[in-house]
């Protein structure tokens, strides 16, 4: 049961961080970052297999692969920027966190813009 492993890790890390924070508050942040990274790494192989399946499904679909690729990229960017901004927010640096989110939004926009513009071109072409 993988979920026990992860919940156990999470609770242990939380307790450790609470105890350590009383003496050295800055080490609590280190522990929370490390716990987040470890949980993510534990899940990475399963996530990869899920994405693989979805990707093979889109092969059967009569659809361009570009869209799926950009969707995966967008989801990845959203996750990573979320992780970074949460860590910053935990340390009380909410302004840096919002900057990270801003950067994530811009990168998502860069990826989404071609799709958006091609839809727009298409609709214009549909007009008689």
């Amino acid at each position: 049961m993988e979920i026990f492993k992860i919940v156990g890790l999470g609770i242990t890390a939380t307790l450790l961080a609470m105890i350590v924070k009383q003496y050295k508050p800055e080490y609590g942040v280190h522990i929370s970052i490390a716990a987040g990274v470890i949980i993510f790494l534990l899940m990475v192989s399963k996530l990869a297999s899920i994405l693989e399946v979805i990707y093979s499904l889109t092969d059967k679909l009569d659809m361009d692969a570009v869209y799926m690729k950009s969707i995966f990229k967008i989801i990845g960017i959203a996750y990573i920027s979320e992780f970074g901004s949460e860590v910053c927010r935990d340390c009380g640096e909410s302004s840096i966190a919002s900057k990270i989110e801003f950067a994530g939004k811009i990168l998502i926009m860069v990826l989404a813009l071609p799709i958006l513009l091609s839809v727009l071109n298409l609709i214009i072409k549909l007009m008689p």
């Binding site: 679909l61 659809m63 969707i71 989110e101 799709i115």
Partner: peptide, 25 residues
């Protein structure tokens, strides 16, 4: 799979575009 954040609405918008593209296929 999407994270529950402010990003969700942007991603939903793009997903909507893609559904639109497929319907117009």
């Amino acid at each position: 799979l999407l994270p529950d954040s402010k990003m969700k609405k942007y991603i939903n918008l793009i997903l909507g575009f893609i559904v639109m593209l497929v319907i117009l296929g």
